[in-house]
């Protein structure tokens, strides 16, 4: 009797390894993410969260292993195919990574104008609409990133990530550097936008409030391996000593802080 077939994950990291010099950062990481699900990867600093995200989105090549998007191996796509492939991705960077020399609307509409060939007038309309969705006034459109607060920059970064309706969105430490209220607003916006687009989301964070709010599932990365994965609702009952120590923020436990 054959086993029931499982749907192809929208994004899958399979046996991914990465080392920098002698330091092994990722040691055979397997992370499948089902279509329409939101996975949050937690873990301490220097445990390979950012490297995982960069490999998933194609900014870094793994030493071994594969990255599959909707079942297609995209690990070592040539540069010419990479741009087209990235069209299905959106990403909110930790510091928003808005382009200093462009206005907010030009930042938000960057992909539309430069990659998708949307006329500037139409691109501006879509950018302003996206800004409104993340709670920014239309008047912000003509300002430069330097004129915005950190929270507003994050919102603009979110608008840029979702404006082209991507199939997979990546969030890199979305609440870092924000006060608790602004962090909660960003979390709400992320949940709202991911739900509206029906897309798959992968986030990395060490903010547990954020992880609980934006994730359907949570995976913990420690020393280059996934040491636990489960529903977000189970994070406080994982019975995993690494997760317990991390979630409760205790100095004592199996995780040793390297000084």
């Amino acid at each position: 009797m054959s086993e029931p077939s499982t749907p192809t994950p929208m994004l899958e990291l399979r046996g991914v390894m990465k080392r920098f010099g002698d330091k092994i950062v990722l040691d055979g990481v397997d992370i499948p993410v089902a279509k329409g699900r939101s996975l949050v990867i937690i873990g301490g600093s220097g445990q390979g969260k950012s490297v995982t995200l960069k490999i998933a989105i194609g900014l870094m090549a793994p030493d071994a292993g594969q990255v599959l998007v909707d079942g297609k191996d995209v690990t070592r796509l040539p540069q010419s195919e990479r741009a087209a492939h990235n069209a299905q991705f959106g990403m909110l960077f930790q510091g928003a990574a808005l382009f200093d020399s462009l206005t907010i609307w030009e930042n938000v509409a960057f992909r539309l104008i430069n990659a998708d060939g949307v006329p500037r007038k139409l691109a501006r309309e879509r950018a302003v609409e996206a800004l409104t969705r993340v709670g920014l006034a239309a008047s912000v459109a003509d300002l430069y990133p330097i004129e915005l607060s950190g929270g507003m920059q994050k919102r603009a970064g979110l608008a840029r990530a979702v404006v082209a309706a991507p199939q997979i969105i990546f969030f890199d430490e979305p609440t870092t550097g924000l006060d608790p209220i602004n962090a909660d607003v960003i979390n709400d916006l992320i949940v709202e936008q991911v739900k509206r687009l029906g897309c798959t989301a992968v986030s990395i964070t060490h903010d547990m409030a954020s992880a609980r709010k934006i994730g359907d599932e949570i995976a913990m990365l420690h020393k280059g391996k996934i040491v636990w994965r489960g529903p977000a609702s189970q994070i406080d009952h994982s019975n995993n000593p690494y997760v317990d120590q991390f979630v409760n923020g205790r100095a004592d436990g199996p995780i040793k802080v390297e000084l």
Binding site: L59, N86, F93, F99, D100, F110, R111, A115, D116, F170
Partner: peptide, 18 residues
């Protein structure tokens, strides 16, 4: 260099721009 340090070059790539 500042664009590299603030991940703006990474952002360009994720926005399908070489």
């Amino acid at each position: 260099g500042a664009m590299r340090a603030t991940e703006q070059i990474d952002a360009l790539q994720t926005l399908s721009t070489d």
